[in-house]
Write a protein that binds this DNA or RNA. Structure first.
Lengths: 224, 224
DNA sequence: CATAATTGCTACCCTGCAGTATAAACAAAG
DNA sequence: CTTTGTTTATACTGCAGGGTAGCAATTATG
């Protein structure tokens, strides 16, 4: 009865339980699904109340499950936090990398980068906000890994700015420092955007694009 | 002996304990001083470990004092948090207001605003960061008051952008939305700057000025 | 239908910490 | 040198919540 809250019970995925291979794989998928659901609900609470103020009992209750259930899928509360933070930065990093793989001038690429990353941040605000806000609650080792991902993000962004600078498209005195401002502007979206608020997601994304373009735009005028 | 950690004991301020008036005033000053010291140490811990993860015992220990000491100057832990958050936003707001009181064109004023606010934010990073990060830990009523101050900040900034737009100095499509980006850029400093890190406070301030100027700069070229 | 394996729950433990009742130390006043 | 008020510490309480031991229910297998 309780497992109902985890929605889609085995039925959906249960097609060919013939071979052991298939059965084992199915089991893995179900486990992965349960982990995802736990993470999702946890991220809601961490986002709304903060990590320390959130109790695993409340997360379990939301899932119509008990605390030991969570502990059979996650080692402890800290592991949940780490996975949420990891998701937050990894999604942004992946969006950046995919955007960078699109061919085009630096200006075109930058526009795509900002648009896609901004959209990802809005769509995954909970994860990104927790990652930005709860760094201090991570174990030192976990915090280090998160910082590495963030650093990869900033570095790739800096490389793009460098490229635009070399081609004369951008006027940036110091690409790696400017990258941090751009990345901050994107992060700010997560901290500030409110669904159903004064401004729509699209408006915010368009604004972000415009702001970043101005930040790198040569004094002479427009580009790209 | 223990009160030593509160440094400057009465001696400093003790000049004319003649009249009762003076004595009472002195007492008030000492009380205010103790409150300030408690707040200062608390802000260190809240900044470094987060609000919930900080124990008042540890704050007391840092002051070479005991927990009931703190409770005789603050009602509870939440009051401490509120005062820290209040300090964080109020300092920024005051810096903004003072900068706005300097006569000049919109461009000149904006430059002064960004410079002063950025400096205040760096100098009071602990307070500002806690205010940005711990909103969810505040009582609803306290959170509301903090948001009001932030809103005042954004509104005054928007008015300046509006003024610059009217005079043709700035190219901003939507002043109140742009104000939020600018205010976000400033906030970002608190979250990202690290004393003794890769870049100096002055570099960061100069960068912030340059970024904001570009964000509002007309397509045609420079201004101010 | 019996046996084994898996999965989840009930019922705890125990620590850490916000907050307090009360006593001691000290200072001020007479 | 007592008396009175103030300031700070000692020594607690209460409980919330992370984490776990062990049991029950369910499912798979022969």
């Amino acid at each position: 009865m309780h497992t109902l809250a985890l929605a889609t019970d085995s039925a959906d995925l249960m097609d060919k339980p013939k071979k052991k291979r298939a059965a084992a794989q199915l089991k893995d998928e179900i486990t992965a699904y349960k982990r995802r659901r736990i993470l999702e609900e946890a991220s809601h609470f961490f986002f709304a109340n903060g990590y320390e103020a959130t109790t695993l009992d409340s997360v379990a209750e939301q899932l119509n499950v008990t605390k030991p259930f969570i502990y059979s899928y996650y080692k402890n509360k800290g592991e949940l936090l780490y996975e949420i933070c990891q998701t937050g930065i990894q999604l942004s990093l992946t969006a950046l990398e995919e955007a960078l793989s699109v061919e085009g001038t630096a200006s075109e690429q930058l526009k795509i980068v900002v648009e896609r990353v901004a959209r990802i941040i809005i769509a995954n605000q909970r994860y990104v906000t927790v990652y930005l806000r709860e760094e201090k609650s991570l174990l030192p080792e976990d915090a280090r890994r998160i910082r590495e991902l963030r650093h990869a993000f900033d570095t790739k962004l800096a490389a793009l700015l460098e490229k635009g600078k070399a081609s004369g498209e951008f006027d940036v005195a110091h690409p790696s420092r400017t990258a941090i401002w751009v990345s901050g502007l994107l992060s700010w979206i997560a901290l500030w955007y409110h669904e159903g608020g004064r401004w729509s997601a699209t408006e915010v994304v368009m604004d972000a694009i415009a702001m970043v373009q101005k930040m790198v735009q040569p004094a002479g005028g427009k580009h790209g």
